[in-house]
Design a protein around this nucleic acid. Sequence first.
DNA 1: CCCACTGTTTTAGG
DNA 2: GCCTAAAACAGTGG
Length: 270
Amino acid sequence: MPELPEVETVKTSLNTLVSGKTIREVRVYYSPMVEGSIWDFQNALKGKTVQSVSRRGKYLLWHLGDTTLVSHLRMEGKYYLKDVDAQKDKHEHVVFVFDDGESLHYHDVRKFGTFVLRETETLFATPPLDKLGPEPLSEAFTPDALRPYLKGERSIKTVLLDQRTVAGIGNIYADEILYCAGVHPKTKAKSVRDADTLVRCVCDILIKAVRDGGASIRSYKNTLGESGRFQLNLNVHTREGEPCRACSHTIVKTKVGNRGTYYCPHCQKR
DNA sequence: CCCACTGTTTTAGG
DNA sequence: GCCTAAAACAGTGG
């Protein structure tokens, strides 16, 4: 499911729903999702209070004092707050039980999501967060920060999807950003000269998507079970065969780096 | 039934 | 270092 705008929306929900709660117990029903031993994982979390939840790229960070829980939703991960005695759904693989009788259920049909515990002190110096590029909505993401990546033979879409370039862009938003910038997704990175426009489009698209609570294309729902609204504002992604909103030419679907890729052949030239 | 596809990331092999 | 294909997994649609 989630790219930066969706993860940001989940982060906001989790902050209101679980900040200040103390973990009484953690139940793990599918252990490959958790790094290391389940026993260590459960014991490290037991008794910890959730100070806040933040986001770095597509990762959710549960701040627990000396320890930070790093959660990645991958394709389909979702969190739902339930009563402690609620029936566990078939696709719920981790349940956090709080001492106030509520529980947070991690739901993930494809079981791709991951949980790792890190010492807060070295959180950003150890995988998986150590190689991430700048936050696209921070001051650190500037044309000068992007320019070093605008070289080489890789396609510009591949570069935007590389989390080392900038953190949080995935398949939907890469397509929308390149449409905004008027750049064909297969353009070689070295041929993209206008770093300013690209940075502006990254910010524009992501800010609007965050404002809309993310995009719900197939399965994405936020922690309150609500759909996002940004799918209504998509210009190219999932619009194969439909007319471009700007020029009426037909939106085309192709593959770039093995990912389904949509673009307008008239507005986006190589 | 079979194949392709799906919002991610990592890894193997050329 | 690059690129591709495949892997982790489950569901859906043609």
